[in-house]
Design a binder for these strands. Structure first.
Lengths: 207, 207
DNA sequence: TGTACATCAGTGAACGCGCGTTCACTGATGTAC
DNA sequence: TGTACATCAGTGAACGCGCGTTCACTGATGTAC
């Protein structure tokens, strides 16, 4: 007889998900280098061999973590409101809350993983498209600079900001008054098609 | 009698520099994880114990690599011409040529290292100040947005660009026609205080 | 100038560690008849 | 309904590896007198 549903796991419950959860937790608490299949197995109270039932090797496990990361990231961005600022804020927020995960997602092996895993490819594109959409909205009927190029710049800006923030370089340069909100306000101004009209920040600057 | 000059090394010549050179080479060719003190010793044709004569431990060695990296980075930026575009180009160029070094310099342990090593602290500040200067020049007498905040944004933009470039995400999103020069031209436009006058890119866009 | 001594950059074997991965296996679950 | 069999998620010991680091040492260089 054909199985009606994905078979319930026999012993553990769902070791695959448990491994991923344990991996994400390790990543958050102790960083990428602390994530080993052995440690993951330990956290799941399972023998060192067990995870290999679900992941061919460590690379495949890391790919699974990255994929899960992109899912959560996508969800976080999708919930963002208030247009470009909101999106940027959500991006920075995620990067601040899950630095090591961000490193894994956008880090060294992205290219290799993305070419092998269509889900990752898609996730990265989706992230970008959300940004492009918001940038396009700002430029509705304004006929300014090419939208796609602007979106790339917006992405680079918010991504760079999150990296500099994550490693403490921003704080280093701005001193104690590093105020991300203010930086972001300026950033968004850059992408407004015309900066002619009066606005809060110019007034701030004159004062 | 007091020594007149730093004593010439006895056996090797200058093992400390040799280690640093070997470390940088390993970093370039095989990435951060391939850099071990043992491998460095091997490359220098020296026993595994030898590097410990010059570096207390691996952390100290990595700090030395990062410091050397910032020296070269600073020199590369200092040679840049053509204002903001040139500076950005030099930044991206360095990041493209020395990706793993960049990762070490701006990566995970920057904060810890910078608080312990004033040279690193200084180097990071100097990088930023060059950017701030160029941004200020663009805004000479224009009284636009606050200069320091603009410079932070410029830094984030170029840094983010270099990261996305380095990991292949830009190519991923832009497809084969990923043209960094074009992206940079747009980027610089963003920082020009008034975008009213006609310029090449707007014409490009209309065509 | 010669000799005893101090310094110090190096040697090479060894330690203990955690890792990725594999081997041969067990025991619970599901299936065919 | 019962029984023989197949499947498959797990066990736990073991393999070989490269690593950071330490130990006790050697031999070249420089210094004091």
């Amino acid at each position: 007889m054909v199985r009606r549903q994905p078979r319930a796991a026999y012993h553990h419950g769902d070791l695959r998900q448990a491994c991923i959860a344990a991996g994400l937790a390790l990543l958050s608490k102790q960083g990428k280098d602390a994530v080993s299949l052995r440690e993951v197995a330990r956290k799941c109270r399972v023998s060192p061999r067990a995870p290999y039932q679900h992941f061919a090797d460590k690379t495949e496990f890391f790919a699974a973590l990255a994929e899960e990361g992109f899912k959560e990231f996508g969800a976080a961005l999708a919930q963002a409101k208030d247009g470009l600022v909101g999106l940027a804020r959500a991006y920075l927020d995620f990067a601040t809350r899950r630095p090591a995960l961000m490193q894994l997602m956008f880090g060294d092996d992205f290219e290799e993983r993305a070419t092998r895993n269509p889900a990752l490819h898609q996730a990265a594109l989706a992230t970008f498209q959300q940004l492009e959409e918001q940038v396009a909205r700002l430029h509705e009927g304004a006929g300014g600079l090419p939208c796609r190029l602007l979106a790339v710049n917006a992405w680079a800006l918010v991504h760079g900001l999150s990296e500099l923030l994550r490693h403490g370089q921003l704080a280093h340069v701005l001193g104690d008054d590093a105020n991300v909100s203010t930086v972001l306000e300026v950033a968004v101004q850059l992408f407004v098609p015309s900066r002619r009209g009066p606005n809060k920040l110019r007034r701030m600057n004159k004062a």
